[in-house]
Amino acid sequence: MVETQLRFRDDEPAGDPAVTVDSFGEQTNAAAVRIEPGDDARVLLPHLDRITLVEVNFPVFGDGRGYSAARILREAGYAGELRAVGDVLIDQLAFLRRCGFDSFAPDQPLNAADAEAALARYPEVYSPTVDGRAPIWAKRHGLA
């Protein structure tokens, strides 16, 4: 099960910023990387053991490519922090978590109570994914 934390930008400690996917190979000591829409997350797969943070940018809420990047990383075994940044809305939180995101840094502040309610909104799910929750059909058939 993916542990989810709601983090806001002003909660961030000062530290090394994430590098881009393109410059990641050049930064041999970088432990944080930022994926932009159009970047191929598979470039990072050989380096997952040394990456502690992957930020996935959502420049607009309707750009869903970051969901695929998250699934690629989690299914390949990435266990570090996977943070959705940018135009992240309350309505997306549960679905982002299902794809493997465990923290969020939205451009606009979210009400913490609303965010917790959004993350708890759907107790049952219909399809398997990386968050470890068994789909309802598997429970009905004794497979979970």
Results as ranks from 00 to 15, higher is better:
M1I: 12
V2S: 10
T4D: 13
L6S: 07
F8V: 02
D10S: 12
P13D: 13
G15C: 00
G15M: 05
P17N: 09
P17L: 05
T20G: 05
T20E: 03
V21R: 06
V21W: 09
D22C: 11
S23E: 09
T28E: 12
N29A: 15
N29S: 15
V33F: 06
I35P: 01
I35Q: 02
G38W: 04
D39S: 02
D39R: 05
A41C: 04
A41H: 06
R42K: 10
L44P: 04
P46K: 01
H47P: 10
T52A: 11
V54Q: 03
N57R: 15
N57A: 15
V60A: 10
G62K: 14
G62N: 12
G62Y: 13
R65W: 05
R65D: 00
R65F: 06
G66W: 07
Y67T: 09
S68R: 10
A69V: 01
R71G: 10
I72D: 08
I72A: 03
L73M: 06
G77R: 05
G80Y: 08
L82G: 03
R83V: 05
R83F: 05
A84C: 06
V85H: 03
G86L: 07
G86M: 05
G86P: 08
D87V: 08
V88Q: 02
V88H: 00
V88D: 05
L89D: 01
D91I: 03
A94C: 14
F101K: 04
S103A: 02
S103D: 09
P106K: 06
D107K: 12
D107Q: 14
Q108G: 14
P109V: 09
P109L: 11
L110C: 07
A113F: 15
A115H: 00
A117C: 09
A118R: 06
L119H: 03
P123L: 00
E124A: 14
S127W: 14
D131Y: 03
G132Q: 01
G132C: 02
R133F: 10
A134R: 09
P135C: 07
P135K: 01
K139A: 12
R140D: 12
R140G: 13
